[in-house]
Write a protein that binds this DNA or RNA. Structure first.
Lengths: 129, 129, 129, 129
DNA sequence: GTGGTCTAGACCACA
DNA sequence: GTGGTCTAGACCACA
């Protein structure tokens, strides 16, 4: 479950992204406890100090709260989490459009490709009517 | 103009991706000459042997043709290039859908976000009517 | 057990020929393990990278299969091996005819020489009835 | 027209083979003048001394005769040349049988392959009746 | 131990 | 100058 680190961005930023994804997807829910810094460091094969830096940055933005002796907890604010989720979605969509355009596709074509891919997935859908 | 290498995939594969993007986008057009192995190596700050490996793999797949003493050239086949472009688009769309779903968005929401983002871009469009 | 390299063809191609002969003759049988790259390099007194190149070219042609950490194995396909054997035989016969003709021999004479040589061998045969 | 030298045999021996082939094939006919040592050295890209050694060895076997100031000449004896031709043919046939057997073919199969190949060649024959 | 990747650098063949 | 081959040797991933 290691991060595929790239060499152009600080690792602690990549760790933040990694955690934000889990917040946005609901894997880490509001108010729940994050893995300890040491545990996270072990899982990601990085130095605990690097994890601490990531946790601290997130605390500054009120995304998590650390309670000495207890651990680090996801914010109780559902709004805050929803905010992150929307931000990440925006970024995702922007990147997608940018890359699709770089490949020379028009808006129409992009929408068409997306619709087709959805249909494909529906065919092989495993989760419901 | 360096590649932002990640550490989980061979550099020569990342170089191939880098070049395929340029093929698909038309930056490297059918029949045109690629930068020489040495030049590409300098630009990307990698060893010429690593570039050669990338070029050779692409040659095996008939994407480029090397002519000793002359250089390495993009295939003349527009079809081959279109094929790459479509493949890359498919992969792009699949990844996008996968990540959007990981963030908990439904098909409807994804399409809506996309449509909104397009509108935004149209407002700031620099090449439109 | 060194290869008698000639200077006009890449060593890795000569290594491939060397191995193909052993495949065709059954010395390396279907599914069996080839000597490791390092061992083969030592035996042939070449660099391991050169052996690897030979092995990789053979893998691309589905003649061998490499399993990381385990070694390189001859294809399981008897058909594939038979195919090689036939190809090599064809080439052998063609070269023989070509050289015999270069010496000014006719088809009749060639066949006669062959028949005589077989008789000779039969006389000194060690495994015959 | 360079020789594809291998590294396991003296170059002068390889030059002798090269010349014997031309004798046997009639390209160098009985009594005719061989290229001068200097010319041969230039053609083969070797040192003239190496050519001289080859010529000398052939002279010892009465295959050629050197006449000071005139050059080196092929023996006048047709018998001698025929003898070489037969020797080379024997060696050729023996090598062929040996290699075919190494590929696992029986006498019957070898003769069959040869016959088939002759038929093939007849089809595409350019000098036939 | 096995194969995989990469660097550094030499020398060659072709133009 | 361009690609092709090869050596030497490092370090990694998998078993």
């Amino acid at each position: 479950m290691a991060i595929n680190y790239d060499t152009t961005r600080p690792i602690y930023e990549q760790i933040i992204d990694y955690i934000l994804k889990k917040l946005a997807s609901g894997e880490f829910s509001a108010g729940s406890k994050l893995p300890s810094q040491r545990e996270m460091a072990k899982v990601l094969s990085v130095n605990p100090n690097t994890v601490q830096r990531a946790y601290r940055e997130m605390e500054i933005k009120d995304l998590v709260e650390t309670r000495r002796g207890l651990g680090t907890f996801v914010t109780e604010s559902e709004d805050k989490i929803e905010e992150i989720r929307v931000e990440m979605a925006e970024e995702l969509v922007e990147n997608f459009i940018e890359e699709a355009r770089a490949l020379g596709f028009t808006e129409k074509e992009i929408e068409k490709m997306l619709a087709e891919k959805f249909k494909e997935f529906e065919g092989g859908n495993t989760d419901g009517a």
